[in-house]
Structures are given as structure tokens and as C-alpha cells.
């Protein structure tokens, strides 16, 4: 970094507003779609693990092992099949969410009180209806807690995708390093943090609207 260069040059930001907005959108998409896909995989997987408890330990082990593989290594593996595309970034990010989401779905289903489950059966719910109308809705607060962790970590991980040219706002971090110009680095970093914070706030709000019945709402947010 050259002497006399300020940390942030506001005129640069002013000149790049449109471009920054575009990359912010891309970043959000790269960060949040994997959480959505992760949820689509975790809900049925968690239900299976809840139904057959013996499935849970091996499933959790696989999810944790996946999480331990460095993203760089995963990118290199998937580049062979999906090239330098967004998919190559999103597939590893999706796999990473599983280690948080699967346990939360399992814990959420386990949080359904036994008398409630029994009452549902005794009222004449079929097994499928009981899961969809009683057990999953009651699991929502615990599942959302997991989604919040997964979303924040996924948004911050997107930047690494810049290694294969798909990093959303990560683009400005590499550009800044190459040009020895701190403004884009600082701007992108602050934007990524803001994205994570706003996403988290939106999820908290969504949960309050979805579960007005939860006793401890307001306390844990």
C-alpha cells in the first residue's frame, strides 16, 4: 500500500455504485441459494434420521467430514465437471450447510413434546399429515436457528469462490490486492458484513411472523 493513499476513497465508491450493486446481488445469490438447497436436502434427511435414529450418527459424520474439506479442494474437484461456473461455488457451499442444518432439523423434530405427538396420533392424523401439519411447524424455531448460522457463514464463504472467478463481492478483494488499492477491499468487506447482518435480521423477523406461538420470542433474537 503506497504512502499517502487513504483507506477509503469515496469518489471511487461514487463512480462504482452500479457495479457494486450488481456484485452485491450476485453475492447474495451465491450465498443464499446454497442455504435453500441445503434446507431442501436437510429436511427429508433430518426426518429420516429422526424416524430411524441409527441413521443419524453416520449421516452427521458424513456432513461433518464434508465440512472439513477445504473449499479450495472442493472447487478443484467440481471444476472438472461444472467448469468455472456459479455451480462450482454453490455445490460446496450447499454441502457445507448440511453439517448445521441436518442436526437442527433432527433437534427441531425432537423438540416436539411427546404428549403433542401422541395427541396428534390419537386425534386421527395420518403419519404424513402429522409430520407436515404438527411436527415440522413445531420444529421451525430450531430449524431457523440453524438457517441463520448457515446463511451467515455461507455469505462470508462466497468470497473464496473468486479463486475460480465466481466470488461475488470477492472480486473487489482480489482486484484491490492486485492493484495495491485498499478502497475496493474495504468496501467489499463492509458490504459482505452488512449482507450477513441484514440477512440475519430478515430471518429473525421471518421467524417471528412464522411462529407467533413461540414462548420465548423476543428473548433469543
Amino acid at each position: 500500500m503506497s504512502d499517502g493513499e487513504p483507506l477509503v476513497r469515496w469518489d471511487w465508491i461514487g463512480d462504482h455504485v452500479g457495479e457494486l450493486a450488481h456484485y452485491t446481488g450476485v453475492h447474495l445469490q451465491l450465498g443464499l441459494l446454497p442455504v435453500l438447497f441445503g434446507l431442501i436436502i436437510s429436511v427429508p434427511l433430518g426426518m429420516l434420521c429422526h424416524r430411524w435414529r441409527w441413521l443419524y450418527p453416520p449421516t452427521l459424520t458424513v456432513a461433518n467430514v464434508l465440512y472439513s474439506i477445504p473449499s479450495l479442494a472442493l472447487f478443484m474437484i467440481f471444476v472438472r465437471y461444472t467448469g468455472l461456473t456459479e455451480q462450482t461455488v454453490m455445490i460446496p457451499l450447499t454441502l457445507y450447510t448440511l453439517s448445521v442444518l441436518v442436526p437442527n432439523v433432527v433437534d427441531g423434530l425432537a423438540s416436539v413434546p411427546e404428549p403433542v405427538r401422541q395427541a396428534a396420533t390419537a386425534m386421527g392424523f395420518t403419519a404424513v399429515r402429522r409430520v407436515v401439519q404438527v411436527e415440522l411447524p413445531i420444529a421451525v424455531p430450531v430449524v431457523v436457528a440453524g438457517v441463520r448460522v448457515a446463511a451467515v457463514s455461507s455469505i462470508s464463504l462466497v468470497a473464496v469462490g473468486q479463486l475460480i472467478g465466481q466470488g461475488g463481492l470477492g472480486y473487489y478483494i482480489t482486484r484491490g490486492l492486485q492493484l495495491d488499492f485498499p478502497t475496493p477491499i474495504v468496501t467489499a468487506t463492509v458490504l459482505i458484513m452488512l449482507l450477513a447482518l441484514v440477512t440475519d435480521a430478515v430471518l429473525v423477523l421471518a421467524q417471528r411472523l412464522l411462529t407467533p406461538w413461540a414462548q420465548d420470542r423476543g428473548k433469543t433474537a
Partner: peptide, 22 residues
């Protein structure tokens, strides 16, 4: 079984109300 149960009322010790429903 589910059909049979819909025709029989059931009350349990801790009420077992559905917490997510009014």
C-alpha cells in the same frame, strides 16, 4: 386406525395441545 380415532375423543394428562395453533 386414523379413521377410527377421529370418531373417539382423547384427552391426556398434559393436555398435549398443539403449541403452534390457536
Amino acid at each position: 386406525a386414523p379413521e377410527l380415532r377421529r370418531g373417539i375423543g382423547y384427552v391426556i394428562q398434559h393436555a398435549g395441545l398443539f403449541p403452534h395453533r390457536t
